[in-house]
């Protein structure tokens, strides 16, 4: 399990039309970067799948995210989101994006409800009333457990509450894909557990494709059916239960047995626990690259 898997998808192969997000031999180098941030990454995310992107800082997770949102364009390779360019998919609000942090001036009195409505209201004409979206926004606030503080200014919310509002904002735009960037950074263990439960509930209710990008093993294990380990290239690409210390050592380039020993056990438990809760993946079509029995058939990456 510890070996770096070769790319089984031919780099020049066309995107998988069944995949909601498809990367084919994607390369990206920043103008002042020392080397490629991503090297020949090929990856498919299936409809309704819960994928975790795990990797060290500087491993290309954020680059993957920006490429999937159309904020960057690959120098080589193809990315499609629901058959469209990522920028077009973002414009059509097919992706619900939950950033790691809010960059706003939080002393400005914007209520949680107003913040949650911002993505949905982009679809309104200049003269249309925002009341049209009110019921949908409130439903999403209710779904994420944020209704009780809907009228509270965002500057007065805790980190966990603000994150729920950001998830409601992403969902209120009625996306097909939910993309979360480092969702548990700065949240205490209790909040992290609540977050995992919330994502499971959302997945059961909305059947959205969910991609969680994180450097935190427990978060990824507890929220994903499949994990893709990214450190410039795609390394491991399978169930979170197979993330052994040897695999993690390879991805994080450390003695993972020392730094991840306990975490690995925790992550394994979190993953099994998540699946016991009925994440619903046995009711869906198998994710691309997996057979119905869960065995792996392909893994991207070129190194």
């Amino acid at each position: 399990m510890s070996e770096v898997r070769p790319a089984l998808d031919a780099p020049s192969a066309p995107p998988d039309r069944g995949a909601v997000i498809s990367l084919r031999d994607v390369w990206f180098t920043y103008p002042r970067g020392e080397g490629p941030a991503l090297r020949g990454v090929s990856l498919d995310v299936g409809a309704g799948e819960r994928l975790g992107i795990l990797g060290p800082n500087g491993g290309g997770k954020s680059t993957f995210l920006k490429l999937a949102l159309g904020l960057l364009r690959p120098q080589q390779g193809v990315i499609e989101v629901l058959g469209l360019s990522p920028a077009e998919a973002a414009r059509r609000r097919l992706i619900g994006y939950v950033p790691q942090r809010v960059e706003a001036e939080l002393s400005f009195p914007i209520t949680a409800r107003h913040a949650a409505s911002m993505a949905a209201n982009l679809g309104l004409g200049a003269w249309e009333s925002a009341k049209r979206n009110r019921a949908r926004v409130d439903r999403m606030l209710d779904l994420v457990g944020a209704m009780s503080f809907a009228q509270t200014p965002v500057g007065e919310l805790s980190g966990g509450q603000l994150q729920r509002v950001m998830i409601a904002r992403a969902l209120a735009g009625e996306p097909r894909i939910l993309l979360l960037d480092e969702p548990t950074v700065g949240i205490d263990p209790s909040g992290q557990r609540q977050f995992s439960e919330l994502l499971q509930r959302l997945h059961q209710e909305l059947k959205l494709t969910t991609v969680v990008v994180s450097h935190d093993l427990r978060t990824v294990a507890a929220t994903s059916d499949r994990v893709a380990c990214l450190a410039q290239t795609l390394h491991y690409h399978d169930s979170p239960t197979g993330l052994t210390p040897a695999v993690l050592a390879e991805v994080f380039r450390h003695d993972a047995a020392a730094i991840f020993g306990d975490l690995h056990v925790d992550a394994h438990r979190a993953s099994e626990c998540a699946h016991d809760h009925g994440a619903g993946h046995d009711t869906r079509a198998p994710a691309p690259g997996r057979q119905a029995d869960g065995s792996r058939t392909s893994a991207g990456g070129t190194s």
Binding site: F108, I110, M118, L122, R169, G173
Partner: peptide
């Protein structure tokens, strides 16, 4: 509406 979203959270707004 897009101006408010941009001013409130530029990074997220770009993602939408």
């Amino acid at each position: 509406r897009p101006l408010m979203f941009w001013a409130f959270d530029e990074h997220a707004a770009a993602g939408f």
